[in-house]
């Protein structure tokens, strides 16, 4: 199986006990804990979930079932309760039904979620498989989206409106060819030359064009938005009159602290002056501001990471195992 190497867990790696006996014991204990958690979840799902109420009630053994209803040309996902209702009213109905492609999809999604999580245990082929899939799928998705959303209308549609309208984009209204669209097409073709080792120097020109345009824009917009408009905020008065004495003191203090912070952090980032004397003093205050800024960033980043984990857990418990139904999907 050399085509699918899974790097073996690195024994002795930090956070992994060096002593093999200890490692084995820890492994067994951890597997036991995970097995208990898994068993609890399976038992709960096995018991099934009652959907609908009263006479319509049906027990569904969760596990990722998705129900859909025909709407217009397509299907729309509906809660299981609706299916229960429809079946109770007419057992032979075809309007609301189980969508097997989507049910298989939820299963695939759940198994892939677990496959990625398995990396926490150690690097393994299942994780690598999920990763390989996502690399290919993302590139394919992005490429097909770029073709349909941008190239078809903005390039093909302008060069050959008749053909494009007939075969690709029925909504197209242009009828005349706009030969200027050859320019981006040419740029693109030159860009594709970068793939070839011999021709990659040709790709330099479109790249230079893109870099030039981009740096021109950035030059102006960074100065306008992040320099000029930010300096404009420094006109904020340092004395802020509030309705009460406490509000006045608080508001004034905050305004002063903001100005002091901006000026001292700027002083910290002076590189042609040694941090001595008043500049050094200012820079030292600036460091405190930076540390508080980073602390807040730290908190916000951690908050974001946990939110993403919560979303994945919710998917497993709700869509797959049907343990909970916070959004009324079942």
């Amino acid at each position: 199986m050399s085509q699918f190497p899974g790097t073996s867990g690195t024994p002795g790696a930090p956070g992994m006990p060096a002593d093999p006996a200890v490692a084995r014991r820890a492994n067994r204990l951890m597997i036991a804990v995970l097995a208990v958690i898994a068993a609890l979840l399976v038992v709960r799902a096995w018991v099934g979930t009652e959907v609908g109420s009263g006479a319509d009630a049906q027990v569904v053994h969760g596990y990722g079932m998705v129900f859909v209803e025909q709407q217009g040309a397509g299907h729309v996902q509906v809660p299981a309760a609706e299916w229960a209702q429809a079946v109770a009213a007419d057992p032979a109905q075809q309007r609301v039904m189980v969508s097997w492609p989507r049910t298989v999809g939820v299963w695939a999604a759940a198994l892939l979620t677990l496959a990625v999580l398995s990396f926490l245990w150690r690097d393994n082929p299942v994780y690598k498989l999920a990763e390989s899939v996502v690399v290919g799928v993302s590139a394919g998705y992005v490429m097909s989206t770029a073709v349909w959303s941008s190239l078809v209308n903005q390039v093909f549609g302008k060069l050959a409106p008749g053909l494009t309208k007939a075969y690709l984009s029925p909504g197209l209204t242009t009828t005349e060819s706009d030969w200027w669209a050859l320019v981006p097409l040419g740029l693109g073709m030159l860009l594709l030359c970068r793939l070839s080792a011999r021709l990659s120097w040709v790709g330099m020109f479109p790249l230079a064009f893109v870099v030039g345009v981009f740096s021109g824009w950035r030059f102006v917009q960074y100065v306008e938005s992040d320099l000029l408009a930010q300096v404009a905020t420094m006109f904020d008065p340092l004395y802020v009159a509030g309705p009460t004495a406490a509000a006045t003191v608080g508001g004034t203090l905050c305004a002063v602290l903001v100005l002091v912070g901006v000026l001292t952090v700027l002083a910290y980032f002076f590189f042609s002056l040694e941090h001595k004397g008043p500049v050094g003093g200012a820079a030292r205050i600036g460091v405190w501001y930076l540390m508080i800024t980073f602390g807040a960033s730290f908190g916000f980043t951690v908050m974001g990471r946990i939110a993403l984990l919560a979303a994945r857990c919710e998917f497993l418990f709700d869509d797959w195992l049907w343990l909970i139904d916070p959004a009324g999907k079942h």
């Binding site: 941008s150 097409l185 740029l187 693109g188």
Partner: peptide
């Protein structure tokens, strides 16, 4: 358009 083609290039 160059940005769109860059995605094609990526693929």
């Amino acid at each position: 358009a160059a940005a769109a083609i860059a995605f094609v290039l990526g693929g």
